[in-house]
Design a protein around this nucleic acid. Structure first.
Lengths: 106, 106
DNA sequence: TGCCTATTTGGCAAAACTGCCAAATACTGT
DNA sequence: ACAGTATTTGGCAGTTTTGCCAAATAGGCA
């Protein structure tokens, strides 16, 4: 693997890594419906607010979500709809796995 | 997060986690062109063969690739093309990030 | 059987990730 | 400036991931 090629896969892994947590998947799903502030997400998730804040910062750092400060609250949004494609692609893989398991059983 | 909902995001995170490593992204890219045995991939990657074998087992465990033993070699293939969708979606996110960075600079 | 090649598994140390608490920061309204 | 709310950051302990080595397993062939 040359350095340039390696950088490409590094960048791709960074995106995947940002998605690689149930809470962060949940956040993306919620932000797909509408923007939310940290406190709202925290209530839905049921973890410490600092934990949720850190999850949000990981997603933001990967360029998956964006933050907008209004009043003393920070509202998060999906940065682009590309993420939703990944979301449905992942679900697609899961469905395919289920299908092939069923095929084995039958 | 109810338990059932949580299970959904858990499963999605599991897929993402399997992809969340540069070497594993590289492997998927290579297997997209054609099947490869462990030794071939190891030569391209330049890590210990046991390391590559473990990466392969992670991908296989997630249902992303499949293994077929022929003679004393194990040939790996993409399990389904759904993964390629994720692959291009991830690249899409990266491109979008680049675009918005350019917009900020200009 | 014995040797060789290919791959997997076990084990361990280093690195990265998680989640909580406490403290710091930022903004609002009095 | 002060109190109150919202969010982020620092730090730390517990867990998971990673990558190497060594050993085990599996198949091919003499």
């Amino acid at each position: 693997m040359s350095n340039k090629i390696d950088a490409k896969y590094q960048e791709m892994a960074k995106i995947s890594k940002a998605l690689a947590h149930p809470t962060r998947m949940f956040i993306i799903d919620k932000l797909n419906e509408k923007e939310h502030c940290v406190r709202e997400l925290t209530e839905m998730i049921g973890a410490d607010i600092s934990t949720v804040s850190k999850h949000l910062s990981i997603l933001k750092n990967a360029g998956i979500i964006s933050a907008e400060k209004r009043s003393n609250m920070v509202y998060y949004n999906l940065q682009c709809n590309c993420v939703l494609n990944i979301f449905s692609c992942v679900l697609n893989v899961i469905q395919t796995n289920i299908d092939s398991t069923i095929n084995i059983i039958e």
